[in-house]
Design a protein around this nucleic acid. Structure first.
Length: 719
DNA sequence: TACTTTGTCCTTTTT
DNA sequence: GGACAAAGTA
């Protein structure tokens, strides 16, 4: 119940007790960021500087929001009811439910997750006879989302070329389809609530005078729309407290804009940027390695972490002959760690992409080492659960064509592709939903849904879900299936989840009174159910570097440190892609408290074929003095280079350089290098050919396009 | 209509 | 190696 301000360092204390003014806090990894944020909220309330209702605290993940709420509650004598603490999407949902009429939405609007959204796009493309080779559904989805995340509606989008024009048409049609069906995607939640405020002065005034303190976590991950949303929601006289770390920005590929931090500092005339640079997590050598690595990035606000704890052990580096070799080594090391007394649950194996987990899992499984994989399929994303949810959504909101199509013939009811096509034509002609247009066999399905609704009206949530799961035939279907036991169990879990979905959760997520079923469906969409079985068990933790952000472990294995994998080959062709990969490696390194293992393999199976990889440049960027090689340094690479040059002496190279070799200089430049051009600005070299005066490089200038340039002619300079 | 077989494509993903 | 969609078969 105490604030314990005496345990804060001077910078933390300054941030917590800052008077009424805007603040930007640059909080390095492990510097006590969450603590500062929560203590500040408690400090504001406790000193009577502000009432709980006037506080708005925004995070990105449900987990972070929960953690914040728990910590604040523990520090305050009163229940922090009335505070708005939540995710961007959770809060946007809350606003839209409360003001659904002003936002032109049905009260029971359904939320599309990414999977649902892709389904909706595919359906749209089919209906409009769009060639899916020319406009791949994923690309269209990506286009729509990136426009929305920039706050751009179809009418305002730039008509750069014919293709853009067509994409915008599809964007328009997609929005119309969603509106017709009463559904809203993730980006739309934000954009719609933003527009609600932009247009409705009364509402804007209401909220603007309510919120006096706005606190934002992980500010480097906000996109343009989220930043504008924040500015609009609490415009008048509120104090903004933004916490972030530009070095941990790893989501620009999804529209995150770390530049918002600099914009914030300028636009809000932040007087003093507070830097939290003391790290309480890692030993010195680990931190030195992280600092050395990240210093290779040019686009930084600048910050250097330090620690009062000792240097600790050197970083251990291992080179495997193969990915299997690497995996076996991990198994051995985790076992000896366990013998030395490090609990498995405090050890993590990190990798760049999910595909890498398979080999490691195989090795762990065969040696009976308990492990837990994070990410992957989450509870509410499982097929059988999605099916059950689709029935529930139809009960709550019959206009939801996505859900209709998902389950109209599941379990099979003899409604095939032709029947559905006819139904879609009929519905389109009449301008009604599939549900409304259903007749014949599909009409029987419609009756089934209507019976479900009539039969469950007014029942407690748990009983509604139970009845729908049974009546839909899903339970029966999976019981009859030989491998269906897990699925039957998950349907049971869904009923349990409904039973556990409490009054309070409902209020916390939706604010005003919303029908229990709608609230539950919202919960399922916004919180896909990360807390899975096996949590807290004594098991080794496996996850991608992305999902490790925000976590810490006694020992960390950072695996697959190879060119093409980490940094990922596709990142080289992206603008500033390499810097983001380096930040990713920085995040990975700073997860470790006491011991850090770095590993790479000479060969690796990828996409069903063997690839020969060169050690990652990130390994070479670490100071040699911090490393301890468990295998001879880059032995495999040296041997290969010797073979390669010997072979070259005898034969002319038959084809282009294989993917494992890092390109040599071409007229003083190399692939992956950042360059500056007087006209096109900054870019990155993605390909190169020729030598001497013939040397040409292909450069990606981002929005300026991708161009081939002759090195001898173009005024290129290294950036 | 419903199930099986073949050919394509691969990052990361808080919501 | 595995997910997904289109094409093939009963």
């Amino acid at each position: 119940m105490s604030l314990r301000l005496e345990h804060l360092n001077p910078e933390q204390l300054a941030a917590v007790t800052l008077p009424d003014e805007h603040a930007l806090v640059l909080a390095g990894a492990g510097s006590g960021k969450t603590r500062v944020l929560t203590t500040r909220i408690a400090w504001l309330v406790k000193n009577g500087l502000v009432s709980p209702q006037a506080i708005l605290a925004v995070t990105f993940t449900n987990k972070a929001a929960r953690e914040m709420l728990t910590r604040v509650t523990a520090m305050l004598p009163v229940n922090p009811r009335g505070m708005w603490i939540g995710t961007f999407h959770g809060l946007a949902n809350r606003l839209l439910r409360a003001h659904h009429r002003e936002a032109s939405l049905p009260q029971a609007f359904q939320i599309l997750d990414s999977q649902d959204q892709l389904g909706a796009v595919k359906r749209l493309l089919k209906a409009l006879n769009v060639d899916e080779d020319r406009f791949p559904p994923r690309e269209v989805q990506q286009f729509i989302n990136s426009q929305k995340e920039e706050g751009v509606r179809p009418g305002e989008a730039a008509l750069a070329d014919e293709r853009a024009r067509r994409l915008i048409e599809l964007y328009t049609a997609y929005d119309e389809q969603c509106q017709r069906e009463g559904v809203v995607d993730f980006a739309e939640l934000l954009l719609r609530s933003y527009e609600l405020f932009a247009r409705n002065e009364i509402l804007r005034e209401h909220y603007a005078s309510r919120f006096r303190h706005v606190l934002v976590d992980e500010f480097q991950d906000t996109n343009r729309l989220q930043y504008r949303w924040l500015k609009l929601l609490a415009a008048r006289g509120a104090c903004y407290f933004a916490v972030g770390d530009d070095d941990q920005s790893i989501y620009t590929f999804r529209g995150a804009r770390p530049g918002n931090m600099a914009d914030f500092e300028r636009e809000f005339k932040v007087r003093k940027v507070i830097r939290l640079e003391q790290n309480y997590r890692s030993h010195g050598n680990i931190l030195d390695a992280a600092n050395a690595l990240i210093s290779n990035n040019r686009n930084r606000l600048g910050k250097n972490l330090w620690t009062a704890s000792g240097a600790g052990e050197p970083l251990r580096v291992f080179e495997g002959q193969s990915d299997g070799d690497e995996a076996r080594w991990i198994v051995e090391e985790t076992r000896s760690l366990a013998r030395e007394g490090t609990p498995l649950s405090r050890v993590a194996v990190l990798y760049r992409s999910n595909a890498q987990s398979r080999v490691i899992e195989h090795a762990l499984f065969s040696q009976s080492v308990p492990y837990r994989v994070y990410g992957g399929l989450r509870f509410f994303e499982r097929a059988e659960v999605k099916h059950a949810l689709a029935y529930l959504r139809l009960v709550a909101s019959p206009g939801d064509d996505n859900s209709f199509l998902r389950v109209v013939n599941f379990p099979a009811r003899g409604i095939g592709a032709r029947t559905i096509e006819q139904l879609q034509d009929a519905a389109r002609a009449r301008g009604v939903s599939l549900f409304e247009a259903a007749e014949g066999k599909a009409g029987a399905f419609r009756n089934l849904i209507e019976e479900m609704r009539a039969g469950t009206e007014g029942l407690p949530l748990k009983e509604i879900v139970e009845a729908v799961v049974a009546k839909s035939g899903l339970l029966e279907h999976y019981k009859a299936e030989r491998e269906g036991a897990d699925r039957v169990e998950n349907l049971g879990e869904l009923v349990n989840a409904a039973a556990a979905f409490s009054e309070e959760e409902r209020e916390a997520e939706s604010g005003e009174v919303v029908e229990p079923l709608t609230a539950f469906l919202t919960h399922a969409a916004l919180e896909a159910g990360e807390h899975q079985a096996g949590e807290g068990q004594e098991a080794l933790q496996l996850m991608t570097v992305h999902s490790a952000k925000g976590l810490e472990f006694d020992a960390v294995f950072l695996t697959g440190l190879e060119e093409g994998l980490f940094p990922h080959e596709q990142s080289v062709t992206e603008r500033d892609g390499l810097e983001e990969e380096r930040r990713l490696a920085y995040v990975a390194i700073t997860r470790a408290r006491e011991r850090l293992y770095l590993s790479h393999a000479q060969t690796r199976m990828l996409h069903g074929q063997t690839r020969y990889n060169v050690p990652s440049r990130f390994l070479e960027e670490l100071p040699e003095g911090l490393l301890k090689w468990l295998t001879p340094r880059f032995a495999g690479q040296r041997a290969r280079e010797a073979r390669f040059s010997a072979a070259q002496a005898w034969h002319a190279p038959r084809k282009k350089e294989p993917s494992f070799a890092r390109s040599r200089d071409v007229g003083g430049f190399r692939v992956g290098q950042n360059v500056l051009h007087p006209k096109f600005g900054s870019g990155v070299i993605v390909d190169a050919e020729g030598q001497g005066t013939d040397a040409r490089v292909q450069v990606n200038f981002g929005s300026q396009g991708v161009k081939w340039l002759a090195v001898a002619v173009a005024k290129l300079q290294a950036a």
